[in-house]
Design a protein around this nucleic acid. Structure first.
Length: 567
DNA sequence: GAACTAATAT
DNA sequence: CATATTAGTT
């Protein structure tokens, strides 16, 4: 056992140690993408090779031993000889699981040796819950080794997530074998990661796709590779890599990576502070109020300070978030880059939503809207606004192309288009109408369904927007002012537009609000400042003594045993 | 008030 | 230029 990790370079070993110290590292792997280790200061998720797993386990055992020893000494000093049982405190490491649905609890028997006890699934979850209730503030090292088929049931993740959320355990180490699962974990918690370390092999073709998938996440992507030729490096950079390192990693390289992580954290914190300063003043008030409340609670519990100090063993970290940061992550300020993968997802969603699909006009009405697209894409971290912006761009492009393609305005529909919501203006001579209504143009929405009446409500659906500039365009194109708008916006404009809409048979529906859309993956944004994936981070991060202290004292989310049900 | 699109800002 | 952000609208 002790030699399990010797096959790894010192650099990788050091990385693992950094993980356990709270630094975030992520490696990932599937086939060639082997040996991935996901770490964060908050939650540590790993996709690692078996040897590293063994090392991790060994390391965790060592850590546990160390802390047990310390606890023992503490008890001796306090003269509490009667209690031979191990007690957990803030900062303790608990090794909970080593095999699928097998829990290994390390216990110290009378001979001062450690033995493992195995539990089945039921007892595993029950025991995990119990431990989390009892030792809520313990730093938990959780090693989860996947089943041989490589997939972990969703129920497992759900339970795990629930436990983490409810009990605010942190420092979780999870081992999975598939990069897909790793990717999911990263994307769902991208804000919790600082660094993505990808260990890839030469024959791996998916490395770039993987990098592009993670490109928009706010993590540094570092590629470890056997090869380091220019072509590979260039491709990696194009795919979004931050750095390419040739294997094997050296200690020096690790120290550099560490600096990158630290710098990135500083940057994030500064950015967040600036943003906070500009935006939120009232939130600070809320924060201080919370502190006051906590302070009052502190008086009630005398041992809390002791618990807090016992977590100081982590304070020898070079850097961690300062206490005054209520939220330790910030909204990603980097632009979302619409990588081919992301765009493909987008296109896929658009097609599924049936934009411009009038042929397969089953019951599926077109509902190609940013929100629906977002739901369908199920890309964590992506906001509706970004989708809308991209949609706008795509429609604009399409519009341009259509203009180019169909120089004659008689062709109603462009062929082979993918987008068609953008209202395009078609000019034609209005013969039938007499000059009483000198309408020299018509509105046409290429690709949109023509106006239909919603038979359920017997109402017409929403049409395109008419704005001042849109109106200006119409004027420019048709040389005609459809309605007077000298009084600006208001009911008059609406009247004018309504008039046109109702008098013109070429109206356009806006699709139904999708009722059958599954939105299991993305809960709606209630705030653009902090998207969902950045929320619920308070108190989840270790290395923050104040947070740990708060957790130690805050019993408001105590008694969660009833909230989590284990069937 | 949420969400959409057009338009503008970066 | 590509996105983010705002503004006007339903």
């Amino acid at each position: 056992m002790s030699t399990a990790y010797h096959s790894h370079t010192d650099g990788e070993t050091e990385l693992v140690k950094m993980c356990l110290e709270g630094y975030l590292i992520c490696m990932t792997g599937e086939h060639g993408l082997s040996g991935c280790l996901w770490l964060s200061y908050g939650v540590t998720l790993t996709t690692i090779s078996l040897s590293i797993q063994l090392f991790l386990r060994e390391l965790a055992i060592q850590v546990l031993k160390l802390h047990l020893k310390r606890a023992q000494n503490r008890m001796k000093q306090q003269g509490d000889k009667g209690r031979s049982e191990r007690t957990f405190e803030v900062g303790d490491w608990v090794l909970l699981k080593l095999q699928p649905h097998r829990q290994v609890t390390l216990r110290k028997d009378k001979q001062h040796k450690f033995s493992a006890k195995y539990y089945g699934p039921y007892k595993f979850w029950k025991g995990l819950e119990r431990k989390m209730v009892k030792h809520r503030n313990a730093v938990v090292v959780y090693v989860l080794i996947e089943c041989t088929n490589g997939t972990l049931e969703d129920a497992t993740w759900e339970r795990l997530d629930e436990l983490i959320k409810n009990y605010r355990a942190f420092n979780i180490i999870t081992c999975v074998y598939q990069s897909g699962a790793a990717l999911r974990l990263l994307s769902e918690n991208s804000s919790k990661f600082d660094l993505l370390l990808v260990d890839c092999s030469i024959d791996d073709v998916d490395i770039h796709a993987f990098l592009r998938e993670t490109k928009n996440m706010d993590v540094l992507s570092i590629v470890m590779s056997e090869q380091d030729d220019d072509g590979f490096i260039i491709n990696a950079f194009k795919s979004g890599a931050f750095l390419v390192m040739k294997k094997p990693l050296t200690m020096e390289a690790v120290s550099h990576i560490r600096q990158d992580v630290i710098r990135e954290r500083i940057r994030k914190r500064e950015n967040h502070r600036n943003k906070n300063r500009n935006l939120k003043v009232e939130s600070q008030e809320i924060g201080t109020q919370e502190n006051v409340n906590l302070g009052s609670k502190r008086k009630d519990r005398g041992e809390s300070s002791k618990q807090a100090t016992s977590s100081n063993y982590k304070s020898n970290l070079v850097f961690h978030w300062s206490e005054d940061d209520n939220v330790r992550t910030m909204k990603k300020k980097t632009c979302v880059e619409w990588t081919p993968e992301l765009h493909a997802k987008f296109i896929n969603a658009v097609i599924q939503l049936g934009e411009g699909s009038k042929s397969s006009a089953d019951n599926i009405r077109s509902r190609c809207y940013p929100k629906n697209i977002l739901d369908l894409m199920a890309v964590p971290g992506l906001t509706r606004m970004q989708v809308a912006s991209h949609l706008q761009k795509c429609r604009k492009e399409k519009w341009k192309n259509d203009e180019k393609l169909s120089s004659d305005f008689t062709s109603k529909r462009a062929i082979g288009r993918k987008f068609g919501c953008m209202p395009s203006i078609q000019i034609y001579q209005h013969d039938q109408e007499d000059s009483s209504k000198p309408i020299g143009f018509n509105l046409s929405m290429k690709g949109w369904h023509q106006k239909e009446v919603n038979h359920m409500t017997n109402q017409t659906e929403r049409g395109p927007m008419m704005t001042r500039l849109n109106q200006r365009n119409i004027e420019q194109c048709a040389g005609y002012t459809p309605f007077s708008f000298q009084s600006g916006y208001g009911s008059k404009q609406d009247e004018g537009f309504d008039h046109i809409l109702t008098d013109t048979t070429l109206d356009y529906i806006q699709p139904d609000a999708g009722e059958g859309v599954n939105h299991h993956t993305f809960s709606p944004d209630t705030s653009d400042d902090f998207p969902d994936f950045l929320r619920d981070l308070d108190g989840n991060g270790p290395n923050d003594n104040l947070i740990a202290e708060n957790i130690a004292e805050d019993r408001s989310y105590g008694t969660p045993a009833d909230e989590v049900s284990f069937g």
